[in-house]
């Protein structure tokens, strides 16, 4: 799979973004990929835990990442920190069940940009990611 990373920082609304899905649930990963309905956002990678996500991101520094918090090997909070270190302008949307707001806030303090609560509908996902991209322009 080839990765095309656009390095442009212009405010061009036609700018294309690459995305990685990071979630230990295969169902959630497929759900996000299936329900994602934004033309300029292309899913180019997915990871089942934080460690794989960091490895993949190091090779392919994508523009947008959706991140689960509770994952084996390396959790979402740790992973967010590492991804931001590698690429400070990466956009990270934490997608997690809202069992503990403090944990979600911790993830955002680590460098994530937004939060989407599980379970989510397709339009909620699209709206959240659109909002995330708007913030990048």
């Amino acid at each position: 799979m080839s990765v095309v990373t656009t390095a442009s920082t212009s405010k061009d609304i036609s700018r294309r973004f690459t995305m990685m899905i990071c979630d230990d649930s295969n169902i959630i990963r497929r759900k996000i990929e299936r329900e994602l309905n934004i033309d300029r956002l292309e899913v180019v990678a997915s990871a089942a835990n934080g460690r794989i996500a960091v490895e993949t991101f190091t090779r392919q520094p994508v523009d947008v990442v959706t991140m689960d918090i509770t994952m084996p090997e390396m959790d979402g909070i740790e992973c967010v920190k590492k991804l931001v270190q590698i690429k400070p302008d990466v956009l990270i949307l934490v997608i997690s069940a809202l069992s503990d707001k403090a944990t979600a806030i911790e993830a955002l303090k680590s460098g994530a940009n937004g939060f989407l609560c599980k379970p989510f509908s397709d339009w909620q996902l699209t709206e959240a990611l659109e909002e995330l991209l708007r913030g990048a322009q």
């Binding site: 809202l98 707001k101 460098g111 940009n113 937004g114 939060f115 989407l116 909002e131 995330l132 913030g135």
Partner: peptide, 15 residues
């Protein structure tokens, strides 16, 4: 107060 966080995308975790 941080610039990174999108205001609209964190309302759901407002404690």
């Amino acid at each position: 107060w941080g610039e990174r966080v999108n205001e609209k995308l964190v309302k759901s975790i407002n404690p």
